[in-house]
Design a protein around this nucleic acid. Structure first.
Length: 494
RNA sequence: GGUCCUUUGGCCGAGUGGCUAGGCAAAGCUCUGCAAAAGCUUCUACAGCGGUUCGAGUCCGCUAGGGACCUCCA
C-alpha cells in the first residue's frame, strides 16, 4: 500500500518516492505579510499541515519549509513602482519592518489557533537577499537574464526555446502570449512574458539593498527559488501552494531553477484549491475575505454566529483539498454539529471498558477492522480526509451502542477495541489536528461532579423541580448535561 | 477571446463502469419523570440531450449554468 499524490506537473496521481528514503523535503509558499491572512489563505496552510502530519504519521522525517514573503511583492503587474510593504508603510507612517512584524506575528497567532504545527524552517525574503542576488547573477551568467537600467529580467522566450515554459499549467507559449496584455511600448522588457528577478529602486524607496546592478530589491519569484534551494537542495520532493500560484509564481520558479541549476526544483507540485464565498473565490483584491478573528468571534455581517477554529478545521477536512470549498453559515453549522457528535463518540470510546476476550460478534468485529484499515488507504489515495471522516462516522453508532449497552461489551475483541482507540487518536488528534473543545480545568470537573451528585440525589427523591433547575441553569451558562443509560450523567461545554 | 475545471438528494459534500459514502436538516419509533443525548428506521440523487457498453453519476460528444487562470492574490 503506497502513498499516491496528485502531481500538477503530470496531471495524474503518482506513487510517492522520496529522493532520500525515509525523508521528505517539502516547500510551501507562505503568506505575504503586508495584511492579515484571510480564511482562504488559511485553507492552504491547514491542508499542508495535515499533509505534513500524515507524513510524520507514516514515519518520515520531514523538513517542511514555509517562507514569509516580507519584501519585493509589487502592487501592479508591471515591474516598477513600490512594493506592497513600502506602500503600506508609507500610508501608515511606519517602518516597513514594523508592518512585516505585525502581520508575521498575526499570521503565527492564527496558525497556532488553527493548531497548525510550525514548519521546520520559516525563512524570510529579506533574510536571503544575498542568495537571491547570487541566483539572479547565475541566471544572467547562464544567458537567461538581462539587465536594463538596473533591473534584471528573465528572458522567457529564450528559455522557452529550450524548455517548455508553460509546462506546469500545460500552456503553450503562443497561448500565453495571446493572453498577455500589450503594455503599449513603454515597457523596457524584451518579451511580454519576461519577469523581474531584481528591481531597481528609486532613491526614496524604503526597502532597498545594494546589488551588482545598483540599489534595488528582489522580484517576487526569486525568493522561493533561492530559499528552497538553500534549505532543501536543487531538487526536493514536494513544492506546494495555492492553485492561484501555479500559473505565474510556480511557473517562474521552475524557469528560474532550470535556468540556474538545470534542474526542475520539485518532483511533485501540489496545489490546493480555493475557498469560495457564494461561488466566487475569496481573495484579497476582491475584498470578500473573512479574517479568522472575525470567524472566531462571529463579528462579521455574513456570519450568524462564532465558529471555533476546530470547527473550521473540521469543515475543511470534509472536502478534498483539490476541490473548491464554498463557505456558508449552513455548512459551518453542519460541521459544528457533526464534529460534536464525532468528538463525543471519541470521548466515549476512551471510557469503554477493556476486555480480554475474543470477539463475540465476529461479523461486527471484521467490519470495524475493515473500516479502520481503510483510514490509511484513503489517506494514501492523495490525502482523502473526507473519506476517512465518512468511515469514522460509520463507527460512531458502534461506539455509542457499546457504551449504552445496545451492543454487548465483548462484541469486539480486545485487539479490535484497542485498534479502534489508537486509530481514532492518531487520526483525530495527530493527523487531523483536532483538539478537545470542552477542555475544562480540574476545578470545573470537581464542581460538575458535585452538581451531578446533587442532581442524582434529587432525582432519586423524585424532586424533579430541583433536578431540572440544575440542568436548565447549567444549560443557560453553556454546559450540557446528558443523562445516560443506567442513571449515569456526563457533560460537555457547548 | 484563449486555456482549463466544474454541475451529485432540502443544504454541504465523497465517489476506482456493476452493491445505499458520510455529515446537517426533516419525519417516525425506542429509551427517558420530562427534555436533551444516544440507538433504530425512512428520505436512492447524480444539469439536459445523444453515444460507447451486457451495464455509466463514473467514459465520449453536443447544449446549458457556474467557476478558475491568462494581471497582485493561498
Amino acid at each position: 500500500m503506497s502513498l499516491k499524490i496528485y502531481n500538477t506537473l503530470t496531471r495524474e496521481k503518482e506513487e510517492f518516492k522520496p529522493i532520500t528514503p525515509g525523508h521528505v523535503g517539502m516547500y510551501v509558499c507562505g503568506p505575504t505579510v503586508y495584511s492579515d491572512v484571510h480564511l482562504g489563505n488559511c485553507r492552504t496552510f491547514i491542508s499542508f499541515d495535515i499533509i505534513y502530519r500524515y507524513f510524520k504519521y507514516l514515519g518520515y522525517k520531514v523538513r517542511y519549509v514555509r517562507n514569509i514573503t516580507d519584501a519585493g511583492h509589487l502592487e501592479g503587474d508591471r515591474d516598477e513602482g513600490d512594493d506592497k510593504f513600502s506602500k503600506i508603510a508609507r500610508l501608515q507612517q511606519l517602518e516597513p519592518m514594523e508592518i512585516v512584524q505585525k502581520y508575521t506575528l498575526g499570521f503565527r497567532d492564527v496558525m497556532r489557533q488553527f493548531n497548525c504545527l510550525p514548519p521546520s524552517i520559516e525563512p524570510t525574503a529579506t533574510g536571503h537577499i544575498s542568495e537571491q542576488i547570487r541566483m539572479a547573477q547565475q541566471i544572467i551568467d547562464n544567458g537567461y537574464g538581462y539587465v536594463v537600467n538596473g533591473t534584471v529580467y528573465f528572458d522567457v522566450e529564450k528559455y522557452n526555446k529550450e524548455k517548455p515554459y508553460g509546462i506546469l499549467t500545460n500552456r503553450k507559449m503562443e497561448e500565453l502570449l495571446e493572453g498577455t496584455r500589450d503594455l503599449g511600448g513603454q515597457d523596457e522588457k524584451k518579451g511580454r512574458l519576461d519577469f523581474a528577478l531584481w528591481i531597481k529602486a528609486k532613491p526614496e524607496h524604503l526597502m532597498q539593498w545594494p546589488s551588482p546592478w545598483g540599489m534595488g530589491f528582489p522580484g517576487w519569484h526569486i525568493e522561493c527559488s533561492a530559499m528552497s534551494e538553500k534549505y532543501l537542495g536543487k531538487q526536493f520532493d514536494i513544492h506546494g501552494g495555492g492553485m492561484d500560484l501555479a500559473a505565474t509564481h510556480h511557473t517562474n520558479e521552475i524557469a528560474q531553477s532550470q535556468a540556474c541549476y538545470h534542474t526542475s526544483p520539485a518532483n511533485i507540485w501540489m496545489h490546493t484549491n480555493m475557498l469560495t464565498v457564494n461561488g466566487t473565490r475569496m481573495s484579497k483584491s476582491l475584498g470578500n475575505g473573512f479574517l479568522p478573528g472575525e470567524l472566531f468571534t462571529g463579528n462579521h455581517p455574513l456570519l450568524e454566529k462564532a465558529y471555533a477554529p476546530n470547527v473550521v478545521r473540521f469543515f475543511m477536512l470534509q472536502t478534498h483539498y483539490r476541490s473548491t470549498l464554498d463557505f456558508s453559515n449552513e455548512a459551518l453549522q453542519a460541521s459544528e454539529k457533526g464534529l460534536k457528535r464525532l468528538w463525543d463518540a471519541y470521548e466515549n470510546l476512551a471510557k469503554l471498558p477493556a476486555n480480554d476476550t475474543a470477539a463475540a460478534d465476529a461479523e461486527l468485529d471484521a467490519n470495524v477492522n475493515k473500516l479502520l484499515n481503510e483510514f490509511d488507504e484513503f489517506m494514501n489515495d492523495d490525502f482523502n480526509t473526507a473519506k476517512v471522516l465518512g468511515n469514522m462516522f460509520e463507527l460512531v453508532p458502534v461506539i455509542n451502542s457499546i457504551k449504552d449497552g445496545l451492543i454487548r461489551a465483548d462484541a469486539l475483541s480486545s485487539q479490535t477495541l484497542e485498534r479502534l482507540r489508537q486509530k481514532f487518536k492518531a487520526y483525530l488528534e495527530d493527523i487531523f489536528g483536532l483538539q478537545s473543545g470542552s477542555a475544562g480545568n480540574e476545578k470545573l470537573g470537581e464542581v460538575m461532579d458535585m452538581l451531578i451528585g446533587m442532581r442524582k440525589e434529587a432525582r432519586a427523591k423524585k424532586d424533579f423541580a430541583t433536578s431540572d433547575r440544575i440542568r436548565d441553569q447549567l444549560a443557560a451558562i453553556g454546559i450540557q448535561l446528558k443523562d445516560e443509560k443506567g442513571g449515569a450523567m456526563s457533560w460537555n461545554l457547548e
